[in-house]
Each structure stands twice: as C-alpha cells, then as structure tokens.
Amino acid sequence: MNVAEVAGLTVRYGGATALDGVDLTVAEGDLVALIGPNGAGKTTLVKALSGLVRPAAGRVTVRGRLAQVPEGREMFGDLSVDDNLRLGGWRNGRGGRDTTEIYRLLPALDGLRRRRAGLLSGGEQQMVAIGRALMARPDVLVVDELSLGLAPLVVTDLIAHLRTLNAERGLAVLLIEQNARLALDLCRRAYVLEAGRIVLHGPADDLAHNQRVTAAYLGGPVR
C-alpha cells in the first residue's frame, strides 16, 4: 500500500508554474529519493505533501501520518532541544508528547536536552530536526536536503540512523537531495525532478547507471 501518493500535481506561484503534473508514490516501508537541480520544485513538492501549499491541479493523498524534516533544519532557536522535540508531537495531543523514546532512538540528543537549539552545531540541529519529526509518530518521513551544509562524517551518521529507522520500524522515507550519489546509495527507488516535471523514475540502481543521471548529477559515468 502507498503511504503517500501524488497524482498529476500542479502548483503555481502567481504566474510561475513550480510543479507541472507530478506523479510520485511512496509505499509502506519504502526508501525513495527525489533528486534534481536547484529550483526544480523539490521544496514545493515537500510543502504540497505537508499541506503547506495548495495545488492548482492534481491530488496529494497521504495515508497515515507524514512528518517533515524541513530544509535548513528550521529550529525553534530560542527553545531547548527537549521543547523542540515536544512540539514535534503537537498534533498528538498532550498524551503524545513524551520524548523518552526519541532519546532512546537518537542517544546523541540525550546530552543536549537542556541546550538551546539555536546554539547547536548544524549536525546536532539536523538530528533534532529528525527527532522532532519522529515525535509526530510518522508513517512516512520527508527529509528535505539532509546533507546541506553538513560535514560528510555527520551525514554518514545521519544516514545510518535513517537506515535503521527504516529497517527496524518500517518507517518510509522520502529523501530529497541535491547530493544525488548519497540519495541513490541509500534509497531503493528514485525520481528525477527537472523544471517542475518528473523526467525519470525507477529503481535507484538503474538510475545510478543511467547516462543522463550520471552526466547531470553524478559528475560523469560511474567508475
């Protein structure tokens, strides 16, 4: 079953078309990558999935719960890490805002509970952003630009966490990335978004060897 499904989605800002007839599905327990250049409409797709922009045409269906790790991490900078996490569970009501489970899943956050989120390093903030999204108890996690501005080692660590969450808890992940190599390595399926349209999609392995993808996103043929 698909936890998230986008069909014929068109989004316009004023006169400009940001997304044009996009089809995309994320199945239960899936790991899906969405790659594409800057300005292709990736973040607009994230906003449409989260219900933050209204489609001009098409449909967005989310079965179960979708949570977002937004681009730029978007901390509540003045609040503590624990408060950031608690507010991630806002939709669950008072009973669903206990953060204990998150510290078990992401032990690195445990020592940071009382720290102000705005003062953390980029990698720590990204971890908080993931934890905050997990607080919503999502069936599908949309991660927008996980690697942006982070050191490679930190990214590797975060990716490992996502892999574990996927394997152990069946959490579906839609990873939106400019770093195509990273995304294709982690994910099973992938979509390529260019100028608001899906131009390619298929198993990540196939795309990783697709000439067009290697030329545009992987810096030449693979090995």
Partner: peptide
C-alpha cells in the same frame, strides 16, 4: 505546551507550521 507553542511561533513561524 501551549506556552511553548506560543514561543515557538515567536521563534520560527515556519517551523511551527511544519510541526502542525
């Protein structure tokens, strides 16, 4: 939590929208 949510809106309105 409501007080924290108010502070959250003050701190980062976009993130507040994102968490609902």
């Amino acid at each position: 939590d409501v007080g924290k949510a108010l502070s959250a809106c003050a701190s980062n309105p976009y993130a507040a929208l994102v968490v609902g």
